[in-house]
Design a protein around this nucleic acid. Structure first.
Length: 572
DNA sequence: GCCGTTTTCGGCCCGACTGTTTTCAGTCG
C-alpha cells in the first residue's frame, strides 16, 4: 500500500513550493491531497486501477496523473522538478517557530543559509543584523524558536495528557467565577498524541481565573498570565493553555479551539457559500450575530447535525452530518467489561478478586483474566498445568459473585511458526482466547501476515490483541498486511483489539474504520497489569469513536450471554 | 491545483499578534 508514500511526497512538494513563494492556493491543494490520501481507508492503487482517483474530494486531474505516474514508475516528475536546487534541510527550517517560508527563503538567498547548522553559525557571527525586515527582536525570537524546536518537538501520548487535564479541570471547577470549563483541541478530539493542551473557560473576572490557574499544583513554569489567556508548563512536561471567554461566546470558541483546522476550514467554506461567517466569537449574518452561545448553534445554522468532536477531522463527517447520516457512536457507558487483563499469576499486580471487585466498581458485568502463555518467559507466562489450575481457581471464585463473572482466558502467544503456545485441548476449556505476537518482529511482511492468519483460523481464538505491535513514538509496528488480517477476521468471526494502553492504542482510528467497513468486530480492552490502568478504557473508546464505531461493532458492549455466543459460534 | 444550487473562470477561512514600517507583511493557531 503506497498511500503514505504518496501523501508524504505531496506534503513535501507543498513545503518546497511554499519556500519558493508559489501561489498559496496551489500549495494548499497539494496539502489537501496529502491529507486525504493519508486518511484513505482503502488502497490508493486499487482506486487508481479503477480510475476512481478523481472521485476523492481534493484530487483533480493533475494530482491523479501524478499518482498514476508514481504507481507505474516509482517516480513523480513534479517532485523531482521542485526539489531541484533545494535541500530537505532547508525546507525543515520552516518548522522552527517564528520562521516561515518568507524568512527562510530570504536567509537562503541573502546568506546562503541552508540548514540549522548554517543558521546557528550565522547567528553566532551576527550576520543577520541589518537584513531587510530583521530587527533585534526578530533575532531574539529566532534564537528562542531554535531552542523551542530542539526541546519541545515531541507530542505526548493522550494517555499522559488526559490525567493532567482531569486534574486541572477538577482543581478549577469549584472556582465561583467559572461557569463552564471544557478541554478543547486535539485532546477533546481524542487524538492519539497531543501537542499542547487547550482548556476553555467561560466566566467573568478573567484575571482572577488565570491567577488561580497558573498557581495550581503541578505547574513548573508560567509562560504567560494575562486577563484572557494563561499558559504554563506542568511537571509532565506538557504546555497547557487556558483561555477565558464570554459566556455568550463559549460555544463558538469551543468549536473553534476544538478543531481540527481542516474541519473548521471546511465549515467556514460552507458558511461563506450561505452568506454567513464563522469565527471564534460566533456565527454571523453580515454584522449580526445569529448564534454562538452553544456549539450546536454553529452546526444547526449551517443545516447539519452536531458533530461529535472525535469525528472532526474532515474525513467525510461534514457530508454525513448534512445528510443526517452520522453514526451513533459508541459511548463509554456501552462497555460491559474488559477483555484483556493480567493478574499476579503472570506479570500483573492484582489478584483475581481485586480485579473482579474493581471491575464491579466500574459497573462491568464481566472481566477477562488473560495471563501470558509459557513462551513469554519475561512476563512469567503460565505453563499448561498452571493455566488449568488458574481455571479452577477462577471457577471457585466466581461462585462468590452475583451478576458478575470473571471470564477464563489467556493471552496466548502466536509463535514464530504461526502455531499457538497452548494446544487446542487446553484452549477449549477457556471462555475466551486472546492471541498476540510478542516475538519474531523482524520477520517479513508475508511471514507475519501468515502467522496471524493461521491464528485467526484457529477455532478457539476470539481476539487478536494489539494487531500491529506499534508503540507510539518508541517502536514502529511489525510489518503486516492488515487488509488481509481484517478480511480474515471478518470472515471467521474473530475480533480485532483496540488495545487501550496509552503507548499502544493499537488498532488506530483509521484501521478501526477499515475494520468496520470490512465487517470485522472490535474488542476494546486495556491490557491492564494494574488496577490503576483500567481507566484507560476511556482512551480506547475515544479511538473507537474516531474510527466511527458504534456499539454494535464492539463485542464488549454485548451482554454476557451474547458475548459467550459470539465466542462459541467460532467453535461450531 | 481544485471546484461549481449565482461560476468552466475566478475565486479559494478567519482573526490576532508581532515586529517592522509608516500602512502592512509574516506567522500562528
Amino acid at each position: 500500500m503506497k498511500n503514505h508514500e504518496i501523501a508524504a511526497l505531496f506534503e513535501r512538494i507543498a513545503n518546497v513550493l511554499e519556500l519558493k513563494g508559489e501561489n498559496t492556493f496551489r500549495i494548499n491543494s497539494y496539502r489537501k491531497a496529502a491529507r486525504v490520501i493519508g486518511d484513505l481507508t482503502g488502497d490508493i492503487e486499487d482506486l487508481a486501477r479503477a480510475e476512481k482517483l478523481t472521485d476523492i474530494p481534493g484530487i483533480g486531474e493533475g494530482t491523479a496523473e501524478k499518482i498514476v505516474e508514481y504507481i507505474n514508475t516509482g517516480k513523480m516528475s513534479k517532485y523531482e522538478e521542485v526539489m531541484k536546487g533545494v535541500s530537505e534541510e532547508t525546507v525543515a527550517l520552516m518548522q522552527i517557530p517564528g520562521l516561515g517560508p518568507k524568512t527562510v527563503a530570504m536567509l537562503n538567498r541573502e546568506l546562503g543559509i541552508a540548514s540549522l547548522n548554517d543558521l546557528e553559525k550565522a547567528l553566532q557571527e551576527d550576520k543577520l543584523q541589518g537584513l531587510f525586515g530583521i530587527g533585534d527582536k526578530k533575532i531574539e525570537n529566532i534564537v528562542k524558536g531554535i531552542e523551542l524546536f530542539k526541546t519541545s518537538q515531541q507530542r505526548i501520548s493522550i494517555g499522559m495528557a488526559y490525567p493532567v487535564v482531569k486534574r486541572i479541570i477538577e482543581g478549577l471547577r469549584h472556582n465561583p467565577q467559572i461557569r463552564d470549563i471544557q478541554a478543547a483541541g486535539s485532546l477533546r478530539r481524542m487524538k492519539e498524541t497531543i501537542g499542547d493542551i487547550d482548556i476553555l473557560v467561560s466566566g467573568t473576572e478573567g484575571t482572577e481565573i488565570i491567577k488561580s490557574f497558573v498557581n495550581m499544583r503541578g505547574v513548573t513554569q508560567i509562560l504567560a498570565a494575562g486577563d484572557t489567556k494563561g499558559s504554563v508548563r506542568v511537571e509532565e512536561g506538557v504546555q497547557v493553555d487556558l483561555r477565558v471567554v464570554r459566556e455568550d461566546e463559549f460555544g463558538a470558541a469551543l468549536q473553534y479551539f476544538t478543531g481540527s483546522k481542516e474541519h473548521n476550514i471546511h465549515l467556514r467554506e460552507i458558511a461563506k457559500k450561505k452568506g454567513l461567517k464563522i469565527s471564534e466569537y460566533g456565527i454571523f449574518k453580515g454584522d449580526k450575530k445569529i448564534g454562538g452561545q452553544l456549539e450546536d448553534d454553529i452546526y444547526k445554522i449551517l443545516g447539519m447535525d452536531w458533530i461529535p468532536p472525535e469525528l472532526r477531522e474532515n474525513r467525510g463527517e461534514i457530508e454525513a452530518a448534512q445528510a443526517g447520516k452520522l453514526p451513533k457512536l459508541i459511548e463509554i457507558s456501552d462497555i460491559k467489561g474488559d477483555l484483556h487483563n493480567h493478574s499476579n499469576w503472570s506479570d500483573g499486580i492484582p489478584t483475581f478478586e481485586e480485579m473482579a471487585r474493581h471491575a464491579m466498581k466500574m459497573g462491568y458485568k464481566y472481566l477477562v483474566v488473560s495471563d501470558h502463555s509459557k513462551s513469554l518467559h519475561v512476563a512469567n507466562g503460565l505453563k499448561d498445568d498452571e493455566l488449568l489450575e488458574e481455571i479452577e481457581e477462577i471457577d471457585k471464585l466466581n461462585k462468590k459473585f452475583k451478576g458478575f463473572t470473571l471470564l477464563k482466558a489467556t493471552e496466548v502467544d502466536i509463535k514464530a511458526d504461526g502455531s499457538l503456545d497452548f494446544p487446542d485441548k487446553i484452549l477449549e476449556k477457556l471462555d475466551l482466547v486472546v492471541a498476540s505476537i510478542h516475538s519474531g518482529f523482524k520477520q517479513g511482511k508475508e511471514k507475519i501476515t501468515e502467522r496471524m492468519i493461521a491464528a485467526i483460523r484457529n477455532p478457539y481464538v476470539n481476539i487478536i490483541a494489539h494487531p500491529t505491535g506499534r508503540l507510539i513514538s518508541k517502536r514502529e509496528g511489525y510489518e503486516v498486511d492488515l487488509d488481509k488480517v481484517i478480511e480474515a477476521c471478518a470472515e471467521t468471526g474473530t475480533a480485532l483489539e483496540i488495545n487501550c494502553f496509552y503507548d499502544r492504542l493499537d488498532l488506530n482510528d483509521i484501521n478501526c474504520r477499515k475494520a468496520k467497513e470490512t465487517g470485522a468486530m472490535i474488542s476494546i480492552s486495556t491490557d491492564a497489569h494494574h488496577l490503576d490502568q483500567m481507566w484507560m478504557i476511556e482512551l480506547g473508546v475515544g479511538i473507537a469513536r474516531r474510527g466511527w464505531l458504534e456499539a454494535k461493532n464492539v463485542i464488549n458492549t454485548f451482554p454476557p450471554d451474547k458475548l459467550k455466543a459470539f465466542c462459541k459460534k467460532k467453535r461450531t
